[in-house]
């Protein structure tokens, strides 16, 4: 019963996709770790400018999906295209080029703790974009830090920043190279409700300002409500529901509705 309803929702939304330019296209994605099948049959696509939220329980494999998208993890089976390129078929050089177009915000922020916030921002500009004009680098770093409200902390070490500030700094570091696609791995985990709301609003602002396409992995319903254009619900290695936040919220599926209680 649950699956019949879910499958209908997925099919409806698969049909409705493809209206815009397709940034991500995934079909039949499977991934196992040892004997555990984490992803059994993942199908979805994301169009340009869309904010897609992936909901699911902890350990359900949400993060594995976005790790497959950037080639951090190789899937066991399935078609996985990002910007029209099949990720598993890319050479090391091509994968590097693709990764430059993608921003990945880690759960912890993953700031380089031996560098100041400024040096963290400069790192990708110098090494990835090969910028060497110091004035231009400083201007870019300050502009991005200002957009995340962290300009005052430019010369602080990561250890001097609070959890929310670390997330902002991590976000700024991914934005500094102007990515077209943003992948957020639980952006609000470990934050208080007020800071969580601020980060969620920031995700939305960034999408508008930098015109990015985003996938947001979360189990924070407020974050999903603020950021989502479309919600995908993952359970037992498959997406069991898809739709706008309100559509998913009104689902009669026991598992899906349990997220909104």
């Amino acid at each position: 019963m649950r699956h019949t309803e879910s499958e209908k929702t997925v099919k409806k939304n698969v049909r409705s996709a493809g209206r815009g330019e397709e940034v991500i296209y995934v079909r039949g994605l499977k991934k196992s770790f040892g004997k555990k099948d984490v992803l059994k049959n993942i199908n979805f696509e994301v169009n340009k400018g869309e904010n897609v939220v992936v909901l699911g329980k902890s350990g359900s494999g949400k993060s594995v999906i976005i790790q497959c998208l950037v080639g951090m993890i190789s899937p066991d089976e399935g078609e996985l295209r990002v910007f029209g390129e099949e990720v598993s078929a890319l050479t090391e050089k091509q994968l590097k080029k693709l990764r430059i177009r993608i921003g990945f915000l880690f759960q912890s922020g993953a700031l380089y703790d031996s560098m100041t916030v400024r040096e963290n921002m400069q790192f990708p500009l110098i090494r990835i974009l090969k910028m060497n004009d110091q004035n231009e680098i400083d201007k870019r770093v300050e502009e991005v830090l200002k957009s995340v409200g962290l300009l005052d902390s430019i010369d602080k070490m990561p250890s001097d920043l609070s959890g929310g500030m670390r997330k902002r700094a991590g976000l700024a570091r991914t934005l500094v190279v102007n990515p077209e696609l943003m992948l957020y791995d639980e952006p609000t985990t470990g934050l208080d409700p007020i800071t969580s709301r601020e980060i969620s609003n920031l995700v939305l602002e960034i999408q508008k300002k930098y015109k990015t396409t985003s996938i947001i992995i979360t189990h924070d319903m407020e974050c999903a409500a603020i950021t989502a254009d479309r919600v995908l619900v993952l359970n037992d290695g498959e997406f069991i529901a898809e739709g706008s936040f309100e559509e998913v919220k009104s689902s009669k599926d026991e598992f899906v509705s349990s997220f909104f209680k």
């Binding site: 951090m72 990764r99 880690f106 993953a110 380089y112 703790d113 990708p124 990835i128 991590g170 991914t174």
Partner: peptide
């Protein structure tokens, strides 16, 4: 500790070369 705190992954995913650095 850089591995545990995903700093090496972040470097790799950003397109930088963590082995060289």
């Amino acid at each position: 500790s850089m591995k545990v705190t995903e700093q090496i992954d972040a470097m790799e995913v950003s397109g930088a070369n963590p082995v060289q650095y």
